[in-house]
Design a protein around this nucleic acid. Structure first.
Length: 422
RNA sequence: GCCCGGGUAGUGUAGCCUGGUAACAUAUGGGACUGUGGAUCCUCUGUGGCGGGUUCAAAUCCCGCCUCGGGCCCCA
């Protein structure tokens, strides 16, 4: 027996029905916002991911050399490939450029529930605009995607890195001190933040105010703290506009301002947001996004970019936890030939019906009617056609409704219209 | 990479502590039923994650590995 590689999964037909349903649902939401789908390769030059995330990334991805000694990597995420694609071939496209994608990614992590070595992401990038309305639309779209697939319990949190950086500057912290502080902020350990700040000779009053800002939903408090930093003030007024549009125009009201959202890497800037499924435990983040600058890092002409990624597997998990009723795959009709002599006629009919767009399965085991009906039932088939010599004499067959449990004799010529009505 | 808990037919479980014939349910195939399903009955097939140790004897005790799950680290 062979084993699956650690952190990978097989998907049954039933699971694939769910996954395709969610995937198509997400794609249609992207399209409804004017986004176009793109696809990039499953593996890229290793250099691309090193450029984005630093050399240490190698430990956490599937990196290898091919037979021509090229250093390659299975993609650990999709933003870098998409921006590479943009810089290479799409810089002259009309702006704003709206791109979405769906694909598998690979990370060399310790697997857990909601965390696999091969996982799927859906995501998008909007390139060439940074207006509050563009970013409000981006956040609204992320939220809409998760709502439209059927999730009830999700939490949208919105922050801003420029503003939080401005507060750190205001506190007069060195880069090293900031490095120590950021993980605590990320984990919302406010007591630890307070004691660290006071140890760094920041006044109690100031440290308290800072902790307050991390937890507040009151823009004015933040405004007071960063007064004098004009670029941060601009950013804050844009955030205010964004939130206003989200609330009053997109009609999305259940979000939180969360200034404690931080990101480790320097190419992030400005807007950041996350969407969590609170019941998912340690791996609860479904979606993360914001504004960033990778275009110049990859050698393109400077232009604003923002985007987000949705963890597809976690979305399915969250739907399962919420006991979401996924549509199930059903074959329309099952055909039962009552004897061996009826097989040819049955196949002929099944082909005719398939050409009419009706999905057909038929008995391939020469089983009796009883067993065949049982099989059809276990496969959730809606209708069964029984073909036997008695009816065939009158160019008819028996059409049985599995749900209602009744049946009637129908002329073969009338079958299609009969099936299409119901 | 760290700590903790699991792994027994396809699936769900019992037995493990206290070593001694691997069991139950369900599902699958065949049949009772020769032209009518979700019921019932019969029947076939199928089971200890892998490796080592202790022992007359290991599903059971010990060790290592693999793997799943909970919590960390990380989360680009």
């Amino acid at each position: 027996m062979f084993q699956l590689p650690r952190g990978t999964r097989d998907f049954t037909s039933e699971e694939m029905v769910k996954r395709r349903y969610v995937e198509e649902n997400i794609a249609s939401t992207f399209k409804s916002f004017g986004y176009g789908e793109i696809q990039t390769p499953t593996f890229e030059m290793l250099e691309l991911f090193k450029a984005k995330s630093g050399d240490s990334i190698i430990d956490e991805i599937y990196a290898f050399s091919d037979k021509g000694d090229r250093e390659l990597a299975l993609r650990p995420e999709l933003t870098a490939p998409v921006i590479r694609f943009y810089v290479e071939k799409m810089q002259m496209e009309p702006k704003p450029l709206k791109l979405f994608y769906f694909g598998n990614c690979f990370r060399y992590d310790r697997p857990q529930k909601g965390r696999y070595r091969e996982f799927w992401q859906a995501g998008c990038e909007i390139i060439g605009t940074n207006t509050p309305e563009a970013y409000a639309e981006l956040v609204a779209m992320a939220y809409t995607i998760l709502k439209k697939v059927g999730l009830k319990n999700i939490q949208l949190n919105i922050g801003n890195l420029d503003i939080i950086n401005s507060t750190l500057t205001k506190l007069g912290l060195s880069k090293d001190d900031q490095k120590e502080l950021l993980p605590l902020i990320d984990k919302s350990q406010f007591d630890d933040i307070f004691s660290l700040l006071t140890n760094l000779n920041i006044t109690n009053e100031c440290a308290k105010e800072f902790c307050d800002i991390l937890q507040t939903a009151d823009i004015n408090k933040i405004k007071k703290f960063i007064q004098g930093d004009t670029s941060a003030m601009d950013e804050l007024s844009n955030l205010e506009k964004l939130l206003d549009l989200l609330k009053n125009s997109f009609n999305i009201k259940d979000f939180k301002i969360k200034m404690s959202i931080v990101r480790g890497l320097d190419y992030y800037k400005g807007l950041v947001f996350e969407i969590d499924a609170p019941f998912l435990g340690a791996e609860k983040q479904l979606c993360g996004g914001g504004a960033y600058d990778l275009v110049t890092l990859f050698g393109g002409r400077e232009t604003p970019t923002a985007g987000f990624a949705v963890g597809f597997d976690r979305t399915i998990l969250a739907l399962d936890i919420e006991k979401f009723a996924f549509p199930s795959l059903k074959t329309d009709v099952y055909i039962i030939p009552v004897s061996e002599e009826m097989i040819g006629k049955s196949i002929e009919l099944s082909q005719n019906l398939r050409n009419e767009g009706i999905s057909i399965d038929l008995d391939l085991l020469r089983r009796g009617i009883g067993k065949s009906l049982k099989y059809a039932n276990s496969k959730n088939v809606k209708k069964v056609i029984i073909i036997g010599p008695k009816e065939l004499e009158n160019d008819s067959v028996t059409l049985r409704d599995m749900k209602a449990g009744n049946q009637e004799v129908v002329k073969i010529a009338d079958i299609v219209s009969k099936l299409k009505i119901n």
